[in-house]
């Protein structure tokens, strides 16, 4: 697994450079330090921690990433449900979402039971949750409540669980390199987020969707996704893909990631909050960091599954 070390050394070099630049900026800026610089420093610090956590999960292989993403689902679902309308009568349904659905979905992924984990939430939970709620007898805002909770499971559990599911794909000639596929997806999608942020800050002029997210610009989008696709192409050695295929897949994942960010912004705007939570300093909540991965993971998973296995 020399490739995985190469990737992590590369990440450490990039983060080291980011810390150095942010450190120089902080040192040279007038006091008190501007809030955007404080935020930049917090973001970079959080990136160090996130890379360390992912590296730790990788040490434990498949089980490590399954557990890591189950915990990510837990944190994401918690942030999501906090913003929804729940009633006292939803209590047991909500508890089942956290204590039954999350462990079961990730157990199915861990045992590689594709036929069930790909329909467990969209079919069985979809039918069971409204049935439970109806048996409870509380009809107030019924449709709104059941659809909000179903949507939360799809977003924070079903979609996220397709990231560790990448390990279970049996691609000819790629034995034992499933973790690298995860690393490729995370690096390109998260890289695209960072690059969109940087391009947006440097060249951003024309707002893309001022009603939904005032910080997203066309310049940031094109520059970020273009450069992240090149980044994906240059990381082809992590994957069973050719450089061109890697670039195209990265581009698709980044476009999905962008849409995920946009949808997450629309939800936050609707609920009148700026961030999903406060779990990751400088970034906001878990969903603020994973919204792009949520949309990219299932699409990336299925393209690779149908075209390469």
């Amino acid at each position: 697994m020399a490739d995985i070390y190469k990737l992590f050394f590369g990440l450490i070099a990039v983060l080291g450079a980011a810390s150095l630049i942010a450190g120089i900026l902080t040192w040279r800026s007038s006091k008190p330090i501007s809030s955007s610089l404080v935020n930049l420093n917090a973001r970079i610090r959080a990136w160090w921690i996130m890379v360390a956590v992912i590296a730790l999960a990788f040490v434990f292989g498949k089980s490590g990433v399954v557990i890591l993403f189950a915990l990510i689902s837990f944190a994401a679902l918690r942030e999501y449900v906090t913003l929804t309308h729940t009633r006292r009568s939803d209590h047991w349904v909500l508890i089942c979402m956290f204590l039954v659905v999350i462990p079961l979905q990730y157990y199915l992924v861990w045992t590689d039971w594709y036929g069930l984990y790909s329909i467990f939430i969209p079919v069985y939970c979809f039918l069971a949750m409204p049935a439970l709620a109806a048996l409870w007898g509380d009809t107030s805002r019924f449709l709104e409540r059941i659809s909000e909770q179903q949507w939360g499971l799809m977003l924070s559990v079903y979609c996220v669980s397709h990231v560790p599911a990448l390990v279970t794909l049996e691609i000819p000639g790629n034995d034992g390199r499933g973790l690298l596929l995860i690393a490729f997806l995370i690096a390109t999608v998260q890289g695209s987020d960072v690059l969109q942020y940087i391009f947006g800050k440097l060249f951003g002029k024309n707002r893309l969707s001022p009603n939904v997210s005032p910080s997203k610009t066309w310049e940031g989008l094109v520059g970020g996704i273009g450069s992240a696709s090149l980044l994906g192409a240059s990381l082809f050695w992590l994957t069973p893909f050719s450089p061109l295929e890697a670039g195209v897949l990265a581009c698709m994942a980044c476009i999905m990631g962008f849409l995920g960010g946009l949808v997450a912004s629309a939800i936050k705007r609707d609920r009148g909050v700026k961030d999903w939570g406060h779990m990751i300093e400088g970034h906001g909540g878990m969903l603020d960091r994973t919204d792009s991965l949520v949309f990219a993971a299932p699409v990336f998973f299925h393209i690779v599954r149908y075209a390469w296995t």
Binding site: F74, T82, T86, H91, I95, F98, G277
Partner: peptide, 14 residues
Amino acid sequence: RVLPKGMFLPVPLL
């Protein structure tokens, strides 16, 4: 919402 009256298992919410 985390622990309503009469319940003994909490729902994790922020």
